[in-house]
């Protein structure tokens, strides 16, 4: 779909990525039409991540104050992680003891207000500081492609490369393992990014992985 193109919704209601005018629905974004439940949504092919409460994201520390860290979450808005929302007992002014500039963490979006001020939290068992490894970014719209149907793509990537891999909703991906494997895996992710909208993507990625990691071939 192309911005301004009429969306044929049938009996469903126009959903995400559409707008209504004079009773008709039109697309707002360059994307693909998908029908889900009662709604017809436009799945964008590109665009910036807009934080949504409850999303699990990967953030990189860009700035800190006595009681806050500012995180780059691959969106136009920085995420604020307050010391009280971290998994540690942080003394006032001792933020740098726990997370330094450039450190990566997994965090959850706690709240987003009307003017898009973003609060993050790390107060959950699954959320932690990411030690070592490497973070790559892809457009958030392509995250479902990296994960694949019920996790098929991400399972394949992990199995062949032997790397640990975490994908944030915001399009940041953390990779950890042997350096050569990380580099090869990052290439595979770039492939998915470039071919996200095409057919036979999984097969092409498998071919590439088989060539690159012959040892992992069961």
């Amino acid at each position: 779909m192309i911005p301004g193109q009429p969306v044929d919704t049938g009996s469903r209601r126009p959903g995400f990525g559409t707008y209504r005018k004079e009773g008709k629905a039109y697309s707002t974004t360059l994307g693909l039409r998908i029908s889900k439940g009662n709604y017809v949504d436009i799945l964008p092919l590109s665009g910036k991540y807009v934080p949504f409460s409850g999303d699990d994201v990967i953030g990189t520390v860009t700035d800190m104050t006595s009681s806050n860290w500012l995180m780059d979450i691959n969106s136009p808005y920085p995420g604020v992680l307050h010391a009280s929302e971290s998994p540690w007992r942080v003394e006032f002014g001792a933020t740098a003891k726990y997370l330094e500039l450039g450190d990566n963490v997994t965090a959850r979006i706690l709240s987003v207000d009307d003017s898009k001020h973003v609060q993050l939290t790390m107060r959950d068992q699954s959320l932690r500081k990411l030690r070592g490894g490497h973070v790559v970014s892809i457009p958030y719209a392509k995250v479902p492609r990296v994960i694949g149907k019920s996790g098929s793509m991400i399972d394949m990537l992990k199995r062949y490369s032997g790397c640990k891999m975490l994908v944030g909703k915001n399009g940041k991906i953390w990779l950890d393992g042997e350096v050569e494997n990380i580099v090869a895996l990052a290439k595979a992710i770039r492939m998915i990014d470039e071919g996200a909208h095409t057919h036979g993507l999984t097969d092409r990625v498998r071919d590439y992985l088989e060539k690159t990691f012959p040892a992992a071939n069961e």
């Binding site: 998908i34 889900k36 479902p144 694949g148 909208h197 095409t198 057919h199």
Partner: peptide, 21 residues
């Protein structure tokens, strides 16, 4: 822009349906 390498946008609509993780 999005219709190269063997799959055009219309076809991949199907694929997009069940792919949400």
């Amino acid at each position: 822009r999005y219709a190269f390498a063997g799959g055009d946008a219309q076809e991949s609509e199907q694929e997009a349906g069940g792919n949400e993780a």
